[in-house]
Nucleic acid binder design. Structure first.
Lengths: 193, 193
DNA sequence: GCGACTCTACTTACTGGTCAGTAAGGTGTC
DNA sequence: GACACCTTACTGACCAGTAAGTAGAGTCGC
């Protein structure tokens, strides 16, 4: 009766949560159903019951990301662009502390080895994230809180690309992420408070 | 006698060349000795003769990159920083046209699944690339050809991170690479000729 | 208030494929 | 005859995926 204790939902969610951690730290190709079932204390076939093919699991993961991201964007719509940027930076710190990289980073790096259904979802997801980054710097410029050369498209795209890249580099050089965050603030003409 | 037709060198080099293409398009974990031996028209064990463990092949690949990169940097030492940046952009275009991403991108994304020897080589390689990017913008600033806020460390790091990220994103959004290149030129205060 | 039925959520047990890696043998060249 | 450079033939591990069976909980007629 109570949906929050529904066994189906529960195991399914646990699988997705574990798969998410594995994908962001090891990549989609480098984890197996064994990794999940072992950690979860069930048999391999139990995972196949919820997600018949690994592709199904992968698509479900990305689609969950897209829904979560859409809610995240909507929930923060009222915040000022500089505050939204700070939240974005905090999110990157969270990934870094968990030894993970961002979803778009691992998915685009592995793209050519992913099944077509996952590529399609990934393309939509990345498009949504880039649009969001462009939007922040555009509204920041309009509001007079951000000042920079070039277009919002160019600036938003470079912010997105640099954050994705620096999260990866930070695995090898712990200063990279902080350095990029600080430089983005400077390039957006924001106080380095 | 003639080293350029030496069978050993020849096959070994062909293996490395094929492995390089495979790694930059599919990733280190997503290609097998079968992929190489099939393409090369030899048996699997022939690859193992030259590179007993896959780790040996991986390390050899990265070390070859480091040597090649060192030669590349030295050969261009006399060029002006803006020209060096253009060469860097052209290199990125080359990767993009071959549907590949840069070595540091795939290696840092896959880092947690790589054998320790490869991680060590990767760390050195990435460090060298970042230092080089910082150097270009530092010398560009000193020469008065580049103008930007912040330190050369911050600016060089963000250029490196953004190029790595945009090469990955360009697989999903073909405009990303050009947009980032153009924005970098603007942020470095260079004419957009 | 109890047996028959049904559905969810697993289990055991298996298949066929791919993988890295090895051992032992062959062949041409210096 | 020694060495470089392969070959054939194999092993054991892991992989995604499937088929068939089962335990338990809920539902229904009656």
């Amino acid at each position: 009766m109570k949906p929050e204790t529904d066994a189906r939902t529960d195991t399914r969610k646990k699988i997705l949560d574990l798969a998410e951690v594995l994908m962001l730290s090891r990549g989609f190709n480098a984890f197996s159903y064994q990794h999940i079932s072992g950690e979860l204390g069930v048999r391999n076939a139990a995972i196949h019951y919820h997600f018949p093919k690994k592709t199904d699991l992968g698509v479900a993961l990305i689609e969950r990301y897209r829904r979560r991201f859409a809610r995240y964007v909507e929930a923060q719509a009222e915040l000022s662009p500089p505050v939204q940027l700070d939240r974005y930076f905090s999110l990157a710190d969270t990934y870094y502390n968990k030894q993970q990289i961002c979803p778009s980073g691992i998915l685009s790096a592995e793209l050519h080895t992913l099944p077509p259904e996952m590529r399609q979802s990934t393309a939509s997801f990345v498009e949504e994230m880039r649009t969001w980054a462009v939007d922040i710097v555009r509204r920041g410029q309009v509001a007079g809180a951000m000042h920079y050369v070039g277009t919002p498209e160019g600036m938003g795209t470079i912010v997105f690309a640099a954050m994705q890249g620096s999260l990866q580099l930070a695995r090898l050089d712990s200063t990279a992420l902080d350095e990029v965050k600080q430089q983005i603030r400077l390039l957006l003409g924001m106080a380095q408070a």
